[in-house]
């Protein structure tokens, strides 16, 4: 699809244009988004976080996570910008490495839950009937169980089964998407129920189009703005949930650093009072990232919501 759009956009440019430039919905939205200062601030923070976490560690000499008893619990200094932890590891390097994990988990579980949620929501909303009942009751079931206890149970099971720590990250992603898809599926289904009754859908019936074409060529593009917005919020939520899980020692395990388990490691009176550099950086990272993602998501929603005219 995207390549066609690109080609056609190119073709449109070549034709002499009589009125305003050919403004596709996407280009209009982008222009409006660029004007929204708060959203752009959010985007800048998120972009900075990504850049710092994925590129930053390349410039740090301390990424090997080596224990160094000589520099235990040092306060921030020129050598260690954010100090060192109880095992003498550089906190800045660990925060950035932890960010890699947290952001990856957030993104990956978002992608997975958006994929599953959209697919199931589209199918349920379009076909209704038995399929709808099955999918939505399953979603309801997952929604009625508070997600944190559910995640805790999953996490405890993982520890019980002695899942190797390397794999835990991937399983945490899966867990987060399992609790993430039902909300999305619900929204998508609701939207589908309304879209499928539109006149242009009746027109596709009259044209004798296949269901596959109706679903993915006609209905899905109408859902894309909704999905983008939910997906954005979803990343924030997933990062938060992952931090909570890791904080309770049920997510990604030490020595792999994540923002959650770094705070957990500093979870005692001494560290809290005497070594604030151990918990403020990861805490602030979670806070800043999630807030920034939500602000950006808000901006996206304002821009992409077709009901809002300006």
């Amino acid at each position: 699809m995207s390549t066609i759009h690109a080609e056609e956009a190119g073709a449109a440019k070549a034709v002499p244009v009589r009125t305003a430039p050919h403004a596709s919905m996407w280009r209009q939205s982008l222009r409006r988004l660029l004007k929204n200062k708060l959203a752009m601030l959010g985007f800048a923070v998120v972009a900075f976080m990504f850049a710092a976490c994925f590129i930053g560690p390349l410039f740090s000499p301390y990424t090997d996570n080596k224990i160094n008893m000589a520099v235990m619990n040092n306060a921030p200094s020129l050598k260690h910008w954010l100090g060192t932890d109880a095992l003498g590891r550089d906190v800045l390097a660990r925060v950035l490495l932890a960010g890699r994990i947290s952001l990856t988990v957030g993104l990956a579980s978002m992608v997975l839950s958006v994929f599953v949620g959209t697919l199931l929501g589209v199918i349920a909303g379009y076909y209704r009937g038995v399929v709808d009942q099955l999918v939505m009751r399953l979603a309801d079931l997952l929604l009625t169980i508070p997600s944190l206890p559910l995640l805790f149970i999953f996490g405890a099971l993982l520890s019980e089964w002695k899942v190797p720590t390397d794999y835990r990250m991937y399983i945490v992603m899966l867990m987060l998407s399992i609790v993430g898809w039902p909300g999305l599926a619900r929204m998508v289904r609701g939207q589908m129920l309304s879209l499928r009754e539109r006149e242009y859908m009746q027109a596709t019936v009259v044209l004798g189009l296949r269901d596959r074409r109706k679903l993915f060529n006609h209905l899905l593009p109408n859902l894309v703005p909704l999905i983008i917005v939910i997906a954005t919020f979803n990343i924030g939520g997933a990062i938060l949930s992952e931090s909570v899980l890791s904080y309770f020692g049920l997510g990604v395990m030490a020595p792999t650093p994540t923002w959650g388990n770094m705070i957990d490691a500093a979870n005692n009176m001494i560290d809290f009072q005497d070594h604030p550099w151990l918990w403020i950086p990861p805490g602030f990272s979670i806070f800043a990232t999630v807030i920034a993602i939500n602000i950006f998501g808000d901006g996206l929603r304002d821009v992409l919501d077709p009901k809002q005219k300006r």
């Binding site: 056609e8 919905m25 004798g208 074409r213």
Partner: peptide
């Protein structure tokens, strides 16, 4: 209301031909 608002006119014209 009989044309899909998010698809280009050309795409919608092409569909029955492809189908």
């Amino acid at each position: 209301t009989s044309l899909n608002p998010v698809l280009k006119i050309g795409e919608q014209l092409m569909e029955p031909l492809i189908e």
